[in-house]
Design a protein around this nucleic acid. Structure first.
Lengths: 140, 140
DNA sequence: GTAAATGCAAAGAATTTGCTAGCCC
DNA sequence: GGGCTAGCAAATTCTTTGCATTTAC
């Protein structure tokens, strides 16, 4: 479980992966990152992508999002923030809402352990999907 | 994506699965449910477990929790509530904290779509794991 | 020079699916 | 009795891993 590695080297591959993640706000899957990195580095392997994504998460450079039961998604924004998920199209948007650290304290009173962090996600229908819905209901 | 099924039948298998989930607060995995149901119904198949868990989630009888990148876990408590997750042992506890519906409204102002729901999870170290940590640090 | 990282491919783990027989309504 | 379900097993899908080679420091 604990990785006793001396240090982490800088590699072109990891640099490219991080750059791809920093330049998008789409919260992509590992495979999407793979396709992107391949454009400038045709020989990267998926294994390298997965290994580096894991490393980047451990380094705190990237966040791992687990939504629904299919793919894991990655968030190139390392700062704490909340998300809005569209139930129709699956899109994930970053929210500007300030993080509410008092929540941790409230919970700390109830839990006998220690509370360090929290994750908050909102669900609904995004503007585009609402527009589509009203169009198709007019058709009917 | 849309299942155009006429109706949902009651079956012994689904009944057993729901009973197992209602009688535990451990937020088990599909496989754990499988092992439990097998005790009273040795011929159930894992496929049936997965199919029914999916159906139960769609029916709103059960909640699906996705934490970390490994297994999906299921929560037999159909009411909205928050969770506390121990980062050390992975245990998930239900919280008594009242759900804060105002949060949806706050976010609704920022998002151009519609916000229906939210999910809030706290992370930390549970009491048991904290006890173990202090013991092992005394050993050192 | 040496340990860490890559590429490639094969293995693994969790979940889904096709098909026939059986059970619910 | 018709159609949803179960059982069984094979298939998928996403992710991890072993190993020889390459690369960063």
């Amino acid at each position: 479980m604990v990785k006793a590695k001396g240090f982490v080297r800088k590699t072109k591959q990891r640099g490219a992966i991080l750059r791809v993640l920093r330049n998008t706000d789409t919260h992509p899957t590992a495979d999407w990152v793979y396709q992107e990195v391949r454009k400038e580095m045709p020989h990267v392997s998926l294994g390298t992508i997965y290994r580096n994504l894991k490393t980047l998460v451990e380094m705190g450079e990237v966040q791992e999002l687990c939504y629904g039961s299919s793919y894991t998604r990655f968030d190139g924004n390392p700062h704490r923030h909340y998300h809005f998920v569209c139930n129709e199209c699956g899109k994930i948007e970053d929210l500007e809402l300030d993080c509410i650290d008092e929540l941790n304290k409230v919970v700390a009173r109830e839990v006998s352990g220690r509370v360090y962090d929290h994750r908050l996600e909102f669900y609904g229908t995004c503007a585009e999907c609402m527009a589509e819905e009203s169009v198709s209901s007019q058709d009917a």
